[in-house]
């Protein structure tokens, strides 16, 4: 049924730390690896070794540059997958009931046997979290590794989404946001976890931790007096060369 549950018992989701992510794309690869051979249809590739290779991915890492006025630019690597929104617009638009949000843990899933591949849920998602598999003709999306997190055949340490398990920087965290004492709830509270595009009212479960403020050259240091330039004007031989060169035409105008 494509109506959303009024509330869910658990709110399973991810915290993604933009301060820690190094943009290595390991989460992209482990996600593709796990999900192409487990839950649902495999994640196909088109022309993988040809021109314009293309494929289905449930997790992708963008890279952005943020620059405040007068400051140096900062690189932010930005992994993006399904945010398992509480008010998921992708679910309610589905005409067949293939898309649903689970009442027990809030995971948004697609029943691929019911999906007609109309693509409307991908249109309704503001984040680009859903991709229509070009080979299977069904909609693919992050399952929060639903076939890992409850899987008692796996060692307990592996019962977490593949992207979280593999992240070498520890930039991804998995847990229950409904529990205020969970690791993800605490991290969100401590570090000011953000929603993406909050203006659209989707109420994402996944949170993003902003990059921590960087050191600045403007901060007053006890060494500052010793770091002042000792000479503003060239003297001696260099001063003489500067003077002679200045006499010749051809200096660029800004420097004159």
């Amino acid at each position: 049924m494509t109506s959303l549950p009024t509330s869910t018992e658990k709110k399973l989701g991810l915290v993604i730390d933009l301060d820690t992510c190094v943009g290595c794309h390991a989460c992209v690869i482990s996600c593709k690896g796990w999900n192409t051979e487990n839950y649902g249809a495999p994640l196909s590739d088109q022309r993988p070794y040809g021109e314009e290779p293309m494929g289905t991915f449930l997790n992708r890492v963008h890279s952005y540059e943020v620059q405040a006025e007068g400051q140096s630019a900062q690189t932010v690597h930005f992994p993006k997958s399904c945010l398992h929104c509480e008010n998921a617009p992708c679910v309610t638009v589905c005409p067949t009931g293939a898309s649903y949000k689970r009442a027990e843990d809030g995971i948004v899933l697609v029943n691929e046997q019911d999906c007609i591949g109309c693509g409307l849920c991908a249109w309704a998602c503001p984040y680009g979290a859903r991709e229509l598999d070009q080979e299977e003709g069904v909609m693919k999306k992050c399952t929060l590794c639903v076939d890992r997190i409850y899987n008692e055949n796996l060692p307990e340490v592996d019962r977490t989404p593949a992207c979280v398990r593999t992240c070498p920087a520890g930039a991804r965290h998995f847990g229950d946001f409904a529990d205020p004492d969970s690791n993800v709830s605490k991290l969100t509270a401590e570090r000011g976890g953000m929603d993406l595009m909050p203006e659209l009212g989707t109420a994402p479960v996944n949170k993003y931790l902003p990059p921590r403020p960087k050191d600045s050259w403007d901060d007053e240091s006890i060494l500052a007096p010793f770091l002042e330039p000792v000479a503003d004007e060239a003297k001696g031989l260099l001063g003489w060369i500067d003077k002679q060169l200045s006499r010749l035409p051809g200096d660029s105008k800004e420097e004159v």
């Binding site: 933009l18 952005y64 943020v66 620059q67 405040a68 006025e69 400051q71 900062q74 932010v76 930005f78 503001p126 984040y127 953000m194 929603d195 993406l196 595009m197 909050p198 203006e199 993003y208 902003p210 990059p211």
Partner: peptide, 9 residues
């Protein structure tokens, strides 16, 4: 707003 980074620059 899409990245949550807009208030930083």
């Amino acid at each position: 707003t899409a990245t949550g980074l807009g208030d930083r620059g």
